[in-house]
Design a protein around this nucleic acid. Structure first.
Lengths: 148, 148
DNA sequence: TCCTAGTTGCAACTCAGTCTCAATTATGAC
DNA sequence: GTCATAATTGAGACTGAGTTGCAACTAGGA
């Protein structure tokens, strides 16, 4: 599987070790779809009978990010969520503040505009966050109905 | 001054009181330019000889946001910064992760694209975050020089 | 002036994430 | 395979931003 090789490669290039815990974390991440958080992963480790400590998980998430395997989504109120990135295009997010639903969107035009903005300012972009918050179709409908 | 009326109006509409502390906070906010954080405001209160407790400040910042007077910028690692919004256009940010510099940019095209994305998904936007992280011109130059 | 809902400061608390440290282990060299 | 050693681990203490409970105080309408 591509992600495993990629991680092994990243580790050896940085003189880091492929431990049992790292394998367990990677497995869990690869087996989780959508957007997940630290507690979901910890619960998954327990369920699988391969516990990994909170400290170790927190120590290794940045490694998975550096290796390009996952991506971190910093949400309001210090909530962090992660999502698998291997073999995916860059995309941004629509976040429903009622039900927590996260939708994705891609826009080459936005990316082009960002590049242009950076170029004009001599700014070297290393990353960006682009989140639209609001009410998803279902929640918006529910709200309309409630108000009559 | 526009902001003061605006806040007084917001308070009375919501049956809230115009206290000494709220006046001090608003004064400090209006007298601070650029992007500021909670500790800067607290230091300002002390400097002005009008201390306000941390709890009270935290309780009132959301009120200033609801009143449309300031805007909250949620940055990485749970750092929050604020900026004055009265009489300003909506804008987004370029954040230098080396020196902390925050630049602003405006793009009607990005806003148009966002509206279009939302329309297509039946999503009702209530807010958004659009931050570009990287190295500002000065820091990027410094980095290039360091590498030779 | 009185009444009361709203407000305040303080200190205790929460919560996500980080750090310390002693014990353990992967990996490269032999 | 054995050894040496630098990296890694779990537990629990810690940090820092922000929140909360509470008793004392106060703005502002009746």
């Amino acid at each position: 599987m591509q992600a495993i090789e990629r991680f092994a490669d990243f580790l050896s290039r940085n003189r880091l070790k492929m431990t049992r815990e790292r394998r367990v974390i990677l497995d869990q991440v690869l087996g989780t779809r959508g957007h997940f958080d630290v507690d979901q992963l910890l619960a998954g480790f327990r369920r699988a009978g391969h516990p990994v400590s909170r400290a170790t998980l927190y120590r290794n998430l940045p490694r998975l990010i550096e290796a390009g395997i996952i991506h971190k989504l910093e949400m309001a109120h210090g909530q962090a969520r992660y999502e698998l990135m291997v073999g995916r295009h860059h995309h941004d997010h629509l976040i429903c503040t009622d039900c927590g639903l996260i939708l994705e969107f891609e826009s080459h035009d936005v990316e082009r505009i960002q590049d242009e903005v950076c170029r004009r300012r001599g700014f070297v972009m290393t990353g960006h966050t682009h989140q639209i918050r609001g009410h998803c179709a279902a929640c918006a409908g529910r709200r309309r109905r409630r108000r009559g």
